[in-house]
């Protein structure tokens, strides 16, 4: 699919994306191209619309009453807001990890098996066992939980829960993983583990991450987008955004003068 760095494959092409909550316009026309196989970070002050924009990619805004999305969002050239496209199928291709770890009140095994079960991805128990193991391994959690797969997922620590949730997302073999401030509820050690995991996952998936920590964005992302007051102010390679931003608002934010 991708042309190995030279000419990165574009996963999402967005043109004039606007989101309304009732009368209130939260995003004022965003144009952006998100590359495949890499980490794209969204930064910006609270309420700038970055989380809202993230939820555009898997149509999670559909679940909010009164939310409307306009503009065009093409995923692999296909309009994901097309009337004929089933958001349920889209969400199987675009996984999401939330700010607060949200394991289901089920066992660790059932948490991971939940997605594959509803999408009918496996045909036998052995296959499912294998898929669960593979997903937990990929999320770097297998060694810690392999002896207690039947114990409740809610009993894990915050960092483990967040990796469990990533394993749960991976299990349905998505192409994209959206992360909405995934480390904001974690301590520094769990955060470091999570970042190492994201670094591994980006080989395989297109990762879009919203973060409040600029240090985190600088550490893990390849490209960074800076949002402010519902506008995309600047988008470019992370290095450039953090060392030589082209816009004074970006400069003010990353140097801590606003935000």
């Amino acid at each position: 699919m991708s042309d190995k760095k030279a000419e990165p494959y574009i996963k999402f092409r967005c043109k004039d994306v606007r989101v309304h909550y009732g009368q209130n316009e939260a995003l004022h026309g965003i144009d952006i191209e998100i590359p495949d196989n890499g980490v794209t970070a969204f930064i910006g002050p609270s309420g700038c619309g970055k989380s809202t924009f993230l939820r555009v990619f898997n149509r999670m805004n559909d679940t909010i009453e009164g939310a409307r999305v306009s503009g065009s969002i093409l995923m692999d050239g296909e309009d994901i807001y097309d009337k004929n496209l089933d958001p349920v199928l889209l969400r199987a291709r675009v996984g999401m990890v939330f700010q607060k770890p949200n394991p289901f009140p089920k066992s660790i095994y059932d948490n991971v098996a939940y997605g594959p079960k509803i999408h009918g991805l496996t045909t036998s128990k052995a296959e499912m066992d294998h898929l669960v193991e593979k997903s937990l391994k990929r999320a770097g959690l297998w060694a810690e939980v392999k002896d207690r797969l039947k114990s409740p997922g809610t009993g894990l620590s915050g960092g483990q829960q967040q990796r469990l949730v990533i394993a749960r997302a991976i299990a349905v073999s998505p192409e994209v993983i959206l992360m909405d401030e995934p480390a904001s509820a974690l301590d520094p050690i769990a955060t470091a583990k999570l970042e190492a995991l994201i670094d591994e996952l980006k080989e395989r998936y297109c990762i879009v991450i919203v973060t409040h920590s600029m240090a985190q964005a600088a550490r893990i992302s390849d490209k960074t987008a800076f949002f402010h007051m519902g506008d995309l102010v600047e988008f470019g390679p992370t290095e450039m955004i953090f060392t030589n931003p082209g816009n004074s608002r970006t400069q003010d934010y990353i140097t801590g003068r606003t935000g």
Binding site: N58, M60, V88, R91, A92, N102, G115
Partner: peptide, 14 residues
Amino acid sequence: PQNLRDGSYALGAT
């Protein structure tokens, strides 16, 4: 909690 619902919807559950 709403985040359990979100987690399930985000996995493509109806």
